[in-house]
């Protein structure tokens, strides 16, 4: 369907200067999102879905307007737990990544442990966290942290482990210590890997915090959605999902922006223009 619209717009662009002036690549995300909502609305209408099964987007937006106050409060709570957990993950992930990348022995010893730990579904850890810290904010922050620090660790360690041997030889011949090589080459070199991993980690952090809020909290979008579900308020559940998607996209965009700002040298093709 999109291919058809594309050819149609191209034909029009040649004829009308107004159509030619629109940057279609920039507009595409918005147009596609609108198309998705339109399609969804039409589907609900065509199949005559009851709102308790699949509410139409108009219904969902109405719910957002109606419950704006609790949605706003719970969205902020989820954003707070997520960014807290994510911030801890960034600090800890960077530290552990540098530690693991430092020596081959530490790398060999810790890597299997990390993989084993990462294979554990984090939802299974929430009850343990509740026993330790009670329900509420703390387990949500910790779950967000636990689920999002692994990709950061792996990326930083990979950046360090792949220093070119020639570079190392040149510096070592000058009398460089391991610390010098890490500071001058290893760490700057692993920064593109690190900032790249933030994009993955932030979306995972949302998964962690919402899972924990759903299972064990009185606040947050996860809790709001599970109580809405128990009252068969399905439009509110979808409103919560929509807010999560919006927060996820916003944070991802922020991470992508930071990545570009911090490691412009790794995106040569765009800078060379």
């Amino acid at each position: 369907m999109s291919a058809m619209t594309d050819t149609a717009t191209q034909a029009k662009a040649a004829a009308k200067p107004l159509m030619a002036r629109i940057n279609w690549v920039k507009a595409a995300p918005w147009l596609y999102t609108l198309a998705l909502f339109a399609l969804w609305e039409l589907l609900v209408m065509a199949l005559d879905m009851p709102p308790t099964i699949l509410p139409a987007p108009s219904n969902v937006f109405a719910a957002i307007a109606k419950y704006w106050s609790p949605i706003w409060k719970n969205s902020l709570q989820t954003l707070y737990t997520t960014t807290m957990g994510f911030a801890i993950a960034v600090v800890a992930g960077l530290a552990i990544g540098l530690f693991i990348g430092w020596s081959k022995t530490i790398y060999a010893g810790l890597y299997p442990l990390m993989i084993g730990f990462n294979a554990i579904p984090k939802v299974a850890l929430v009850p343990i966290l509740v026993i330790w810290f009670g329900i509420g904010t703390v387990p949500a922050v910790l779950t967000a942290f636990l689920i999002s620090f692994f990709p950061i660790v792996v990326n930083v360690a990979t950046g360090l482990a792949t220093i070119e041997p020639e570079t190392e030889d040149v510096l070592r011949a000058l009398g460089a210590k391991k610390m010098d090589i890490m500071l001058k080459v290893g760490i700057p070199r692993s920064m593109p890997y690190f900032f790249g991993s933030l994009k993955v980690a932030i979306t995972l952090a949302f998964v962690g915090s919402v899972v924990s809020e759903t299972v064990a909290s009185n606040y947050g979008l996860g809790n709001m959605m599970s109580s809405a579900q128990s009252q068969f308020n399905v439009p509110l559940v979808f409103a919560g999902l929509l807010m999560l998607a919006v927060e996820g996209i916003a944070m991802y965009a922020l991470m992508a922006w930071i990545e570009r700002r911090m490691t412009g040298w790794a995106h040569r093709s765009t800078m060379a223009q």
Partner: peptide, 30 residues
């Protein structure tokens, strides 16, 4: 390692996040 030696390999191994001048000054930091 003897620091009175300078080395150059077939692969120039310039660090891409430093300007050429900063790359050249690197040995002085070591």
């Amino acid at each position: 390692p003897v620091s009175i030696v300078g080395m150059a390999f077939q692969n120039p191994t310039m660090l891409p996040w430093r300007t050429t001048l900063e790359n050249i000054l690197l040995p002085l930091e070591i």
